[in-house]
Design a protein around this nucleic acid. Structure first.
Length: 655
RNA sequence: GCCGCUUUAGCUCAGCUGGUAGAGCACCUCAUUCGUAAUGAGGGGGUCACAGGUUCGAGUCCUGUAAGCGGCACCA
């Protein structure tokens, strides 16, 4: 007999081989009807699966959150069945559930069209209506290979071929259609429901390898019910409205054009945003004990050969040959330049840790297909720094960097979701002992900073493991911004040394780190995070002073000058247009504060402030408004510093 | 780089089965001085991405190139 422990804590005994459905029926017939999956000791199983052992047992209906992934997986099978019914000769490969949905990769010579997608979706709904039972079968591996070979499913046969000989495989059958699959699945196609939609067609390499043939991938989204599906589609629409490329155009921040692919033309307002971010970063770095440097844009190839980048990334570098036969490269990163400064003169252990920062303009020839607005460009500026330190300083430096980066991210309205630890890749430089040590140091440092990283196997750089910050934006999307890598390889290759307490020469460790990553990309993330409605301190135009009638022109100009004198970024709008029109226009332009002046305000020396997103107004004297707005426009780090220094003065006076 | 789709006015888009280009917004001009998300009238603006081809005739069909978009691969 096997013991099943139910969620309420009670235990009941059943014959081995009993199915989940039978157990459900022993409780209530209605429950057996609604049972979609069972969970045994945390493992999801088909309801008709014979149970071989006891354990913590739970019956799940299709509404259970855990069932959603299975619904998506089922819908991907239904997609594959529909495709093969409509397009005989198409081979199926794999079709997993993914975040928010599923995809299925199929092989067919003819490309699918958007019209095909409509037909496929229609057929999928018919398959759901057919209520085909989904049945699990255990097959002998070699017979399975032979079977899939015989029906022309060479990709499936290849997958089974990679399963160790002697192991059985499982095949799920729904109606006439069957697929190699680990499962679990719902009891029938009807249970999967119709809250799905095919969303896009794409190409994808077989097994994710660019040397393999390209398959056609059909993406879809699937949910437990229509309301969830509608909500998801609505979220997608909202996310599209935040697209930084669209907002960049409508807010006149930047543009890109084909003569400079992957390069940004920053317009006045965009550059204002840039300079605001850069000035903020500069203050934070200075406060954290960094020094700022600047290194050459173009350097001889010998540096890139020494660092190993020439060998690893030569095709992705912009290289130029001079008339005198030198071969130079635009810097793809700043590390060798910083090491040259470190090596200039002698360094002592007393100089360490030496935190060397640069807003470094780098160029990388990214593959054309990788380019994406500001998010992936060929010319970018890193908020880069290298911390040269002794081995025993690594953990401390990394931990304080995590604190600094987290504070910066929060100031920009981004919250940390988690940190990943990217471990040794293949190929890589350095010995396994080195990698063991370097990975352990990063892990220790993260823990010291109170963070437990999620391991990303093989995601490190070729010379060092790394910690990457995964941030969540205002609508819950995650972005990777910020990294730190502890590198023993490049200081050695580039010949960096310092004199230790023992008078001997030692190799420093180099911590490569960035908080924004690239400023281009970071600004792209900020645009999407705020949907263009920046907080006052970041907004390119903070205030528009606008008139109701031309009687107020003189006062409006005076008010604008007064606000500018308080350091605010102010525009005036004296056009002969209705106030409704002006308010609408500046609201659409996401200006945080509209200061309206009519005859009344002009006579009384006041401003009527209207905040973006609210329709009320605050009527203040010009002096009050200037003080209030100047305070509110203070960058968060400056505001904290001011508050702290006031606190210290208060303590001194009290003491 | 690979697969697919797309490319018409500054922007968003319409243009049926090939017969010689249209809307809204924006822009310019004039009128309007109007209290918190679009005042009215008039006007200018397009080698229909580029290069070939088919045709009496191409924005429309075909081929190639480029760029953009969605993925994949890549991301020091």
């Amino acid at each position: 007999m096997i013991d099943l422990i139910f969620p309420d804590g009670s235990t009941r005994q059943f014959e081995p081989g009993v199915t989940g459905k039978q157990v459900a029926a022993s409780i209530a017939v209605s429950l057996a009807k609604r049972a979609a999956l069972i969970k045994l000791d945390g493992e999801l199983l088909d309801v008709d699966r014979a149970l071989e052992h006891g354990g913590k047992f739970e019956i799940l209906t299709r509404d259970a959150p855990e069932a959603l992934e299975t619904i998506r997986h089922d819908v991907s099978h239904i997609l594959a069945e529909a495709v093969q019914e409509l397009f005989p000769g198409t081979q199926v490969t794999i079709g997993p559930a993914i975040e928010d949905g599923f995809y299925y990769d199929v092989a067919r010579d003819e490309p699918f069209s958007l019209d095909d997608l409509v037909a496929i979706e229609q057929r999928m709904k018919e398959i759901v209506d057919r209520d085909e039972p989904i049945v699990r079968e255990v097959w002998n591996r070699d017979e399975a290979i032979a079977h899939f070979q015989s029906i022309g499913e060479v990709y499936k046969a290849e997958i089974i071929g990679s399963i160790p000989a002697g192991e059985d495989v499982t095949v799920y059958r729904q109606g006439q259609w069957k697929d190699l699959c680990r499962g679990p699945h719902l009891p029938s196609t009807k249970v999967a429901g119709k809250a799905f939609k095919l969303t896009k067609l794409a190409g994808a390499y077989w097994r994710g390898d660019h040397r393999n043939p390209m398959l056609q991938r059909i993406y879809g989204t699937a949910w437990a019910n229509d309301a969830d599906l509608a909500a998801h589609l609505h979220r997608i629409e909202e996310a599209e409205k935040r697209d930084h490329r669209k907002i960049g155009r409508t807010m006149d921040l930047f543009h890109m054009q084909e003569e400079g692919r992957g390069m940004v033309f920053w317009h006045e307002k965009g550059l204002t945003l840039w300079r605001t971010v850069e000035a903020y970063m500069r203050r934070r770095l200075e406060a954290a004990g960094y020094v700022e440097v600047r290194t050459p844009q173009v350097l001889d190839r010998v540096f890139w050969e020494q660092s190993g980048h020439w060998q690893n990334y030569r095709p992705n570098m912009f290289v130029c040959e001079t008339v005198e036969g030198e071969e130079l490269a635009l810097k793809p990163m700043n590390c060798p330049g910083h090491v040259q400064i470190f090596k200039y003169g002698q360094k002592s252990y007393r100089d360490l840790p030496l935190r060397m920062a640069e807003f470094g303009a780098c160029h990388r020839y990214e593959p054309s297909g990788a380019l994406h607005g500001l998010m992936r460009v060929r010319a970018f500026t890193q908020d880069d720094a290298h911390i040269f330190c002794r081995e025993d300083q690594i953990v401390e430096e990394v931990a304080s960097f995590i604190a600094l980066a987290s504070s910066v991210h929060e100031d920009f309205g981004l919250t940390r979701d988690h940190i990943t630890l990217g471990t040794r890749p293949t190929p890589r430089a350095g010995t396994d002992e080195f990698w063991d040590m370097a990975e352990t140091q990063l892990l220790d440092a993260a823990r010291k900073a109170g963070v437990e990283p999620v391991v990303a196997e093989g995601d490190g750089a070729f010379y060092a493991p790394k910690l990457d910050f995964q941030l969540k934006d205002a609508i819950g999307r995650t972005w990777t911004c910020g990294t730190i890598q502890n590198d023993y390889v490049l200081p050695d290759r580039l010949g960096a040394e310092f004199v230790g307490e023992d008078g001997q020469k030692h190799k420093p460790v180099m911590l490569h780190r960035a908080i924004c990553g690239s400023l281009e990309r970071f600004i792209g993330v900020l645009i999407e995070n705020f949907a263009g409605a920046f907080p006052l301190w970041l907004a390119p135009v903070q205030v528009v002073v606008t008139t109701i009638t031309s009687d107020a022109d003189d006062f409006a100009l005076k008010a604008a000058a007064a606000l500018r004198a308080r350091g605010l970024r102010v525009e005036t709008d004296l056009r002969n247009e209705k106030i409704n029109y002006k308010v609408r226009e500046h609201s659409l332009a996401k200006v945080p504060v509209i200061a309206v002046v009519g005859r009344r305000e002009a006579e009384e020396g006041k401003l009527a402030l209207r905040r973006l997103g609210s329709d009320g107004q605050e009527i203040l004297t010009l002096a009050e408004a200037a003080n209030l707005l100047a305070t509110q426009a203070t960058p968060p780090d400056v505001a904290r510093e001011t508050a702290a220094s006031e606190g210290r003065v208060g303590e001194l006076l009290a003491g």
